[in-house]
Design a protein around this nucleic acid. Structure first.
Lengths: 65, 65
DNA sequence: ACATATAGTAATTTATATTATACAAAAAGT
DNA sequence: ACTTTTTGTATAATATAAATTACTATATGT
């Protein structure tokens, strides 16, 4: 896998995984696993991430096909 | 609550909850609960729903605020 | 009014998202 | 080279998404 869209958006905002996790109120591991595409977050968490990173759901989470 | 965006999009496609559930490969109850905003589906399920209904994630799942 | 299809809901079970803790690997700073 | 920050992982525990079954309520058709 290449670098995830979430990681790109996070780094573009100069946030560490821990900082993003804290802003959203979730553990750092959750952010890490999502960035590594290890699982399947809930929509509410996706919405929080999208808002924290200033992106749309589609930009961050919609796949290509 | 008023009628959910998902329900509107489903009805506009002339699909029953059961038909939508079958196309996505999920139980009818899951569709029902999502439409009634009783819980918090995973992003993969949201993507399946969005594709089945021909809508974007943002149209169906992004909230107002 | 009656029958049938569709939608709403409840209880229980199973799968899995998420947390917590901990440790190792890699990156960045000095 | 050393220290510190950040990231990647692993395991076990907890919370909750999703399935299953079943029953009731509402809508739709005749």
């Amino acid at each position: 896998m290449n670098v995830s869209k979430i990681k790109l958006a996070r780094v573009a905002k100069n946030l560490t995984q821990q900082e993003l996790a804290d802003r959203i109120g979730v553990s750092r591991q959750t952010i890490n696993l999502i960035e590594k595409d290890k699982y399947n977050p809930t929509i509410k968490l996706c919405i929080s991430i999208a808002k924290a990173l200033g992106k749309s759901l589609d930009e961050l989470f919609m796949d290509e096909n």
